[in-house]
Design a binder for these strands. Structure first.
Lengths: 373, 373
DNA sequence: GTGAAAGCGCTAACAC
DNA sequence: GTGTTAGCGCTTTCAC
């Protein structure tokens, strides 16, 4: 008969006429239990509707088989893909995953410091969030394995792509197509920037811009500052920035957006301005989120889901006591050609445009297969 | 000095020259502690770098202040919004959230039965997943509060919208605009459907279709079966279905898609077929996910984020021992008019196709106000 | 006000 | 093989 109080291991022991130790052995599949005994115990459990207490097991073992996933802006498509990747392998490895969504530096600090408390989680994956030295130190002190995705933290195993190379790859791709006036739309840093505090910072956009600049420099092209536009992340801002670019006396024939989300804003701007894509304007994004394929957006693909999965695998390795090498894991980048990029054409209203389009230039394409070196 | 072994409450007690009971009182802000003592204890904690053990506290109290969020297809935009809403209030209420991502009926069953184990979580929110009676029973037996979002489960507090009314609303909206041939693109049931087993089922699409039918019936319009197309959820499928519709001898002048995701597929189809939107075809979606605003997609809006937040609030109430009423919480629906719907016009040329090439599926923007992402 | 001790439910080391 | 017992680290009576 079921009693009101949930059955414990002791109840089972009594019911089966054995000691708690034996019950525990059965529970954990220990080898040294006579088959008859084992079945008696199993029967008792069944009869009593016994369910082990997760907490008791965890406390006793000193580990809860739980890890934390700390992410910014959960609704961002790229973040979601990463989370999904992590969740898949974590679940498969038998870990529970508590998710900490961070939208402000305060939340980040709060979660991070809470996580380093005793017996909270066994380890953590941090996505795209800059960590202060004190945070890292807190993890180290707590002996909590930590890995990051899309953000470099000294001494912490990290899974990322070479954004500079990606920016360069993107730009060289457009150059190879014959574009000479290439616009850039990306993020500015944002968020509070109080004195010594670190802000929620996403620097990938900066690095991609750096790659863009290097590519232009390598091609001995001047970098027209007017072609570089930055603003808070989001399609709406990107749209506004792109409109500015299109309204220029000498508008770009191509725009490289630092993220697909922003590229979508650029497409919207082109549409509103009656600029055809890719006829009058090529647009190249970055990330390859799901809707990129849907929109036919050409983009620099980074393995988002895989980055989550890989980081999770590395965390699991750490949890097993293994070391992970290399500390910096670089995932490959590749240009995905869809229908928003093409060779440039002459401008309708030739404002001195001339667009010296000479396909002469050797198409030194960035090879699509290699990641950052 | 920091020792190797993490400090426990006992260490603090010794260091402060008090009993563990007192330390515990300080920890929990009990009133009956002399100020001097309290400070001595606090100092000792500081000195020892004491961090309370989450597990020990949880086991002792019998609750871990953790809830589970069980969701299907985490990468779906609508699901993500709900998760974000839940996470926000759960975090604010001091709960940890473990997320269980479910892609197959097996995973669902696995998670659900694991969650009902003792001391695993304090309660759960289930999103869009059908629950078998045995699941619900397991929760009841374990005395675990349970609430659902977007799925009706007898006796379980649920947060949802009236999908039938929504389908009707959508259709009537199009009818009011003057459309008479209105196509429908939605889901079929999918997934394993073994004998007695329940499958991962999303029935909202079915209900929206029912609303569509009722609206047409109320308007005394015949329902042309050829105008109703269903397939596995996803934009690609939706695109194919929409193309079929557009290739009909008498194509619809408007299409109601059972979800925004599918509506996006419909837009893609229109673009590919050279059918202008909303000139030759009106498209109306359902959900109002973030990219709907971005694409200027007219849609039936349901409060996704709010549904997550509301369900979380109700779960918290349950956890406080309160009862929630009404058991069935209905959230409001509304038609959001953007730029993919208009009154019908006559068709230029029958099935000419001709692809009036206007860029690669240029997004139709309308309200740039959605910073989003 | 504060200390001592009995749980919370389990694991694991140690005897028999 | 199996029972016994001492933790795991904290909360919470119940005395003093």
């Amino acid at each position: 008969m079921t009693t009101s109080r949930p059955a414990t291991i002791a109840d089972v022991a009594v019911a089966a006429g054995v000691g708690v130790g034996t019950v525990s052995r059965v529970l954990n599949g220990a080898p040294n239990v006579r088959e008859a005994t084992r079945e008696r115990v199993l029967a008792a459990m069944e009869r009593l509707g016994y369910r082990p207490s997760h907490l008791a097991v965890a406390l006793s073992r000193g580990t809860a088989r739980t890890v934390a996933l700390v992410v910014p802006h959960l609704t961002s498509p790229s973040v979601v893909l990463r989370v999904a990747g992590s969740l898949a392998v974590l679940g498969e490895q038998g870990y529970d995953t508590v998710i900490c969504s961070v939208d402000t530096p305060q939340q980040r600090d709060h979660h991070l410091s809470a996580l380093t408390g005793r017996h909270r989680v066994d380890g953590a994956i941090v996505v795209s969030l800059r960590l202060a030295a004190e945070h890292v130190e807190a993890f180290r002190r707590s002996r909590l394995p930590l890995v990051t995705i899309d953000v470099a933290v000294a001494g912490v195993p990290q899974t990322l792509v070479d954004d500079v190379a990606g920016g360069r790859m993107a730009t060289e791709y457009l150059l190879a197509m014959g574009h000479r006036r290439i616009g850039f739309v990306g993020d500015t840093m944002h968020g509070a920037q109080a004195a010594g505090r670190l802000r929620l910072g996403f620097e990938s956009s900066q690095r991609r811009l750096a790659g863009y600049r290097r590519a232009l420099a390598s091609a001995s092209l001047d970098i027209d500052p007017a072609l570089v536009r930055r603003g808070p992340h989001g399609p709406a801002t990107a749209e506004a920035l792109a409109r500015d670019l299109l309204a220029l006396p000498a508008p770009p024939t191509a725009i490289f957006a630092a993220s697909d989300t922003q590229a979508i804003g650029v497409l919207a701007a082109a549409d509103k301005c009656g600029v055809s894509v890719p006829g009058e304007l090529s647009v190249l994004g970055f990330d390859d989120i799901e809707s990129a394929a849907l929109l036919g957006l050409s983009t620099v693909r980074q393995p988002l889901w895989d980055s989550g999965a890989e980081a999770a695998r590395r965390l699991c390795a750490l949890l097993r006591g293994e070391r992970v090498v290399p500390v910096v894991q670089r995932l490959p980048l590749s240009v995905v050609t869809r229908s928003t990029t093409d060779r440039p054409r002459s401008f309708p209203t030739a404002t001195g445009g001339k667009a010296a389009w000479r396909g002469a230039m050797a198409p030194r394409m960035s090879d699509p297969a290699t990641g950052g070196q």
